[in-house]
Design a protein around this nucleic acid. Structure first.
Lengths: 231, 231
DNA sequence: AAGCAGGCTTGATCCGGATCAAATTGGCTC
DNA sequence: GAGCCAATTTGATCCGGATCAAGCCTGCTT
């Protein structure tokens, strides 16, 4: 790899702390590839050949079973994904496709596993990343099991607002149909859920959401009792 | 700690590969404690002071939100739990309570974090454990999002059978109400789900389940497309 | 500017699972 | 063995969300 994005990638939590020469070893065997929108990057059940780092664009992680499918996560740049499959060297549990045109760094999985063994800093970063990913999944699962759809939506809006700086203005980065799938509901019901939240402190205009009454919203959605530490 | 169980605990994947002296360092600062049934070990939101290792007994991990609660996992001996909270040093995302009388090894969380840094083998084991836990969560989430209740039950029975040796006889280790909570349904509906599966290849007698027609059962529940490697 | 297509919304209906309310069962104590 | 308590099962009803079916709006094509 020989690209302008190298420093940016090197700054990722995953690669930040590791030895320079090991990082160079990883990067020199990796390559950056551009993918058009709507392209399937890999599918559930396949053997993981590469650790993926989304440098630019947007990627959907989704799972399929019993003829249906559902979105497990939406990956925004710059982030690595499917670390767990690479580390365990087991088949993917999800498929991935680009939503927008995307540039992705492909790091050979076997190399990752090898360098991880040699470089404790990388291993530690990997461990942290996995622990965080696990916690995110726990949250997603309890969200799904304990809250109903409008509450889930409200919570997601609060989270997004928090991540975007707490301004009370949230802009959706994806189509609503995708958001619906992520939240585990149909597009129809997402639309209705926005309707419900309309009388709970939110106003919606296309992809632009405004929190007009945060207190009312929080009262309705009952946010997570445990706030995540700001990373 | 000075107990008969030490060798058994030392054989856990988490502690198996590490340096002997580091392991001893961990064990010497840990202590084994006996808890009666139905006792809350810790609660969601608390700061993790100890890594727990269930030596004997049964523990429920559950989450609470919005006045409801749901079971996230059931821990059987011998297994460590809440590694992720310990590693990240962030508040628990779930609560834990004993189901049966249990003996638990309590390992100071700060010590774990420290030794992990010094002992790469332990770190690697931690990383693997977290990766596996993450994958389990992904499965649980997709299960919840994509399958309906009788299918979830059928799948759980198949998994259990697989883990218990594939004999076609599965014995439930917990009350059915707890199983219902794990599967994300009410006890009433669990009962009805067993009824449904009655005509799909299984028969139930109290806690004893018999798979009488595996093909029929698999056709109905559409098992995970990706089989887990036997650990 | 008309036509079209895809995504979003709205309305009507259906279905899975929750809730509420009784039975029934099974292990216990006395 | 009677009585009791908790777990489970069964039945009736209700509700959230899915599905089906139109409309609608926006951006793009021709």
């Amino acid at each position: 790899m020989r690209v302008a994005e190298k420093p940016e990638i090197a700054k990722l939590p995953l690669f930040r702390e590791m030895q320079d020469e090991q990082r160079e070893r990883i990067f020199s065997s990796s390559f950056l590839q551009v993918f058009p929108p709507q392209l399937t990057l890999f599918e559930l059940g396949q053997h993981p050949d590469f650790l993926h780092v989304l440098v630019d664009g947007l990627v959907e992680l989704y799972a399929t079973s019993a003829g249906r499918d559902t979105t497990i996560g939406i990956v925004e740049a710059v982030t690595s994904f499917i670390l767990a499959a690479v580390v365990t060297d087991q088949p993917y549990l999800m498929s991935a496709r680009t939503i927008a045109s995307s540039r992705i760094l492909l790091v050979p999985a076997a190399l990752v596993r090898e360098v991880v063994k040699d470089d404790c800093a990388l291993m530690q970063a990997t461990m942290r990343e996995l622990a965080q990913a696990y916690r995110d999944m726990v949250r997603a699962l309890t969200d799904m099991k304990l809250r109903q759809s409008a509450e889930r939506l409200g919570n997601l809006i609060l989270q997004q607002d928090h991540r975007q700086g707490g301004t009370g203005k949230v802009r959706l980065k994806t189509e609503k149909r995708l958001l619906a799938s992520l939240l585990g509901m149909t597009p129809e019901n997402l639309s209705r859920a926005f309707g419900v939240l309309g009388s709970r402190g939110i106003s919606v205009n296309g992809p632009q959401i405004t929190i007009s009454d945060r207190a009312a919203l929080e009262a309705f959605v009952r946010p997570d009792p445990v706030r995540e530490n700001l990373a």
